[in-house]
Amino acid sequence: MTPPAIASLRAHIRALERPAARPGGLLPFGLPALDQALPEGGLARGALHEIAGGGASPHLAPAATLFAAGILARLEAPVLWCATTPDLFAPGLAQAGLHPDRVLHAWLPDDRSVLLAMEEALRHPGLAAVLGELDKLGMTASRRLGLAAEKSGVTALALRRPRGTADPLPTAAATRWRVTALPSAPLPSPGIGRAQWRLELLRCRGGEPRTWLVEACDAQGRLALSPLLPGRALGAAAIRAA
């Protein structure tokens, strides 16, 4: 719990950072544990959010992909999904509640065209969100995306798919998430249960980094807190134990 003085100071700084009211509003996760960690009580629409995959293959980032699809599924208007690789499988996205009629796909040759398409699409208020699969994203490009999103209220998601192992450059995204698959809980009978993720909020403007154990998106794109350690954010030690 933060003391009230600091909270009010933070609100003041936020107001300085963004003078105008956010046109888009909020998209809560519907999980109090997550929403309370975000300064505005939910994922801000009209801002750039960065999502990366953890684990052995950050380039393929399947968990991060489904996490992003879950966010898009809980929005209402059409969304634009820009990719440079042809490995996205729409039936998988539909399992997080993202109906194919709502998704406009753009298959583009490189990161540059993805950024170009994202910025153009972010100016269009008819879309709910624009997602771009990006290998590299720098400060300038992310700042431009963030500004375009702020102006129109369209949410921008950058799904990071790094090709190399180099540390990602800092960006101007409002939040930065990392989603890593964890071994799921054993079922009483042979089979495979709902996937478990370690969801890390690595960076958050006006908030603090946090980590949760969650269950993967359901058919409506909603997360749930993992029953393994219910209702509480984890420290590093607890993650290792899990």
């Binding site: 399947p62 490995d87 039936p91 998988g92 194919p100 058919a219």
Partner: peptide
């Protein structure tokens, strides 16, 4: 189109 894929079959996000 109004239709989606049959929900109960597990399908991956990357193919």
């Amino acid at each position: 189109a109004g239709t989606s894929w049959p929900a109960p079959l597990p399908r991956p996000v990357r193919l």
